[in-house]
Design a protein around this nucleic acid. Structure first.
Length: 153
DNA sequence: GCCAACGTTGGC
DNA sequence: GCCAACGTTGGC
């Protein structure tokens, strides 16, 4: 299977690219959307590369790159009553929610704002420009490489 | 802070 | 299975 490419969103107030740079790697917990879950549970593979996107930021932008280091497994926060991500419908038999682990690769010297994605030839069709609420989404290899080139300045 | 878009829930 | 109500996301 060829390497795939993804875009994952995080609010920088919650978990930013700087947090990932500091931690080195992290588990992508808290996703509570079925389409996003399915991508993590079924399709993401070790070595896949990820555009790290800051949502609810000023401006919203792709700010760096990460890499998948562990494939889909149950999101334990769904079973933790203390967690803000607790889901009473999750169980041992049916974990309901899944996550992957990612590691820091690079932070862009020139973050690529959403407005630039919309204006750049070859990127107009990126899902982030239309399906703005999908927090884990596939991108094409071409899209990934265009964004990386812009981000590196 | 506002609000449009959209996903989920639950009554019927 | 429909659909109205509701909650959340996320750009602005």
């Amino acid at each position: 299977m060829a390497k795939r490419y993804w875009l994952m969103k995080s609010e920088p107030n919650t978990y930013s690219i700087d947090d990932l740079a500091r931690d080195g790697r992290t588990c992508w917990d808290g996703v509570r959307n079925y389409q996003a879950r399915n991508f993590m549970r079924d399709d993401m593979r070790i070595g896949d590369e990820v555009l790290f996107y800051h949502s609810n930021a000023n401006p919203p932008a792709v700010v760096g790159i990460a890499r998948v280091v562990r494939e889909g497994y149950p999101d334990h926060t769904a079973r933790d009553p203390e967690s803000r991500y607790f889901d009473p419908k999750a169980s041992d038999e049916d974990p309901r929610w899944y996550m992957v682990d990612i590691e820091f690769v690079e932070a862009f010297p020139e973050p690529v704002p959403l407005a630039t994605l919309r204006e750049t030839p070859g990127l107009e069709k990126m899902l982030v420009t239309t399906k703005s609420r999908l927090s884990v989404q596939p991108v094409t290899k071409d899209e990934f490489e265009i964004v990386r080139r812009l981000g590196r300045g």
